[in-house]
Amino acid sequence: MQSYIDELDTGILPFVDYEGYDDRYPTLSVQSFPAEFYDEIRHASRMLFQIFYKATKVFQQAPDEFALNMDMPENLIPYLHRGNPLGLPTWLSRFDFVLDTQGRLRMVEINADTPCFLIESYYANEVGARYFDKANPNEGARDELERFLKRVYERTSQENSKYNTVKSSEANPFVFACFHDYLEDLGTTQFLMNTMQSACPEADVRFLSFYDMVIDDEGILLPDGSHASNLYRLHPMELLIDETTATGEPLGEMFLDLYNEGRFNLFNPPEAIILQNKSFMSLVY
């Protein structure tokens, strides 16, 4: 059956089809709401983020014992206090809302560390809206994403210059990384990478599979001998911190030690994990 799914560019959304699944990934049905409903979601997200931001500051300023009592992994705690170029605990995140039986919005969680569902929101939804002749509720959002990524690039570049990690004559690589054999992560990572390249044509933007990542005393070593100045990582922090080398060395901790030394910026920063902590939700409440 022909549908809007056939109009999706699999070069942008490569996980339309998953091996072993009878049905394609996107839903065939469409559900629309009044414009006021989308405005309410945006307003709720803005206000909730301010609350989460303030609560994160409380969390970061508390003794380490408090973090332990909030079920934060002990080996992560030393990496949750370094400042970052945007001054925000998460740079890119996604609130999840549900409607209760009275039709009221309820926020159930925030995906603050490694959010996905970006291609669907910024690209596929527009294709679906056009196919069904509906107003695109995310009109203009792609332009906002480009402006945001341009700000990320400019702020991180300023931070690199301030700490002298990059000299004016050297490359300033902004690396986007994930495990390339997981299609959803690969598509999401490349979508953000391509959007940043569009927003910042002058940027040195590169893709790197986590399988090929190498670190040395100066940071993340790239194939051409340079080092990454900035890293977008679609790999959960709670998994990264426990990564080890083939000989049993604490690879995740070594990686984050280099981050704490200012060798590179992380997008999202490690403290994004605080907002996803389920105990943190009770602190917010």
Score class of each variant (00 low, 15 high):
residue 72 M to Y: 05
residue 64 D to K: 08
residue 113 D to W: 02
residue 149 L to P: 14
residue 150 K to Y: 07
residue 131 Y to E: 03
residue 73 P to V: 04
residue 147 R to L: 15
residue 76 L to Y: 03
residue 154 E to W: 06
residue 145 L to P: 05
residue 150 K to G: 13
residue 110 I to S: 13
residue 151 R to Y: 07
residue 80 L to D: 06
residue 80 L to F: 15
residue 98 V to D: 12
residue 133 D to H: 11
residue 143 D to A: 14
residue 104 R to Q: 13
residue 143 D to V: 11
residue 92 L to K: 06
residue 83 G to K: 11
residue 102 Q to A: 15
residue 138 N to W: 08
residue 64 D to S: 11
residue 108 V to W: 03
residue 126 E to C: 10
residue 119 I to W: 04
residue 110 I to N: 15
residue 131 Y to V: 01
residue 155 R to K: 13
residue 94 R to G: 04
residue 148 F to T: 05
residue 96 D to L: 06
residue 70 M to P: 00
residue 153 Y to L: 05
residue 65 E to T: 02
residue 74 E to V: 09
residue 154 E to D: 15
residue 100 D to I: 05
residue 148 F to N: 04
residue 122 Y to T: 07
residue 153 Y to W: 14
residue 157 S to R: 03
residue 120 E to Y: 02
residue 136 N to F: 04
residue 113 D to V: 01
residue 120 E to L: 00
residue 87 G to F: 03
residue 100 D to V: 05
residue 150 K to A: 15
residue 69 N to G: 08
residue 80 L to E: 14
residue 151 R to I: 10
residue 103 G to H: 15
residue 142 R to L: 11
residue 99 L to C: 09
residue 75 N to Y: 04
residue 132 F to D: 10
residue 95 F to W: 14
residue 136 N to S: 05
residue 111 N to R: 04
residue 155 R to S: 13
residue 88 L to H: 08
residue 133 D to S: 11
residue 66 F to S: 06
residue 129 A to R: 09
residue 100 D to S: 04
residue 130 R to C: 01
residue 116 C to W: 03
residue 98 V to T: 12
residue 137 P to N: 08
residue 84 N to Q: 12
residue 74 E to P: 02
residue 67 A to N: 00
residue 89 P to N: 09
residue 146 E to Y: 06
residue 87 G to S: 12
residue 109 E to S: 03
residue 131 Y to D: 03
residue 120 E to K: 00
residue 108 V to Q: 01
residue 106 R to V: 15
residue 150 K to W: 07
residue 118 L to K: 03
residue 77 I to L: 10
residue 122 Y to W: 15
residue 95 F to C: 06
residue 133 D to E: 09
residue 123 Y to S: 02
residue 151 R to V: 12
residue 131 Y to Q: 01
residue 129 A to M: 06
residue 143 D to E: 14
residue 136 N to T: 02
residue 85 P to W: 01
residue 124 A to N: 09
residue 115 P to W: 02
residue 66 F to E: 09
residue 74 E to K: 14
residue 68 L to A: 08
residue 116 C to D: 07
residue 101 T to N: 13
residue 78 P to F: 12
residue 87 G to T: 11
residue 103 G to D: 15
residue 97 F to P: 02
residue 94 R to W: 02
residue 67 A to H: 01
residue 154 E to N: 11
residue 142 R to E: 11
residue 141 A to Q: 09
residue 78 P to N: 09
residue 75 N to L: 12
residue 143 D to T: 11
residue 137 P to Y: 02
residue 152 V to P: 00
residue 142 R to D: 07
residue 88 L to K: 07
residue 96 D to N: 01
residue 111 N to M: 06
residue 110 I to C: 11
residue 82 R to H: 05
residue 157 S to N: 02
residue 103 G to E: 15
residue 85 P to R: 00
residue 89 P to R: 07
residue 132 F to G: 04
residue 151 R to L: 14
residue 149 L to E: 13
residue 64 D to R: 06
residue 82 R to V: 02
residue 143 D to L: 12
residue 91 W to C: 13
residue 120 E to G: 01
residue 130 R to Y: 01
residue 117 F to Q: 05
residue 119 I to L: 06
residue 154 E to V: 12
residue 141 A to H: 09
residue 127 V to W: 05
residue 66 F to N: 07
residue 121 S to N: 07
residue 77 I to V: 10
residue 80 L to A: 10
residue 157 S to P: 00
residue 120 E to N: 04
residue 142 R to C: 03
residue 133 D to M: 07
residue 154 E to A: 14
residue 75 N to A: 05
residue 96 D to V: 07
residue 139 E to V: 00
residue 119 I to M: 01
residue 83 G to L: 10
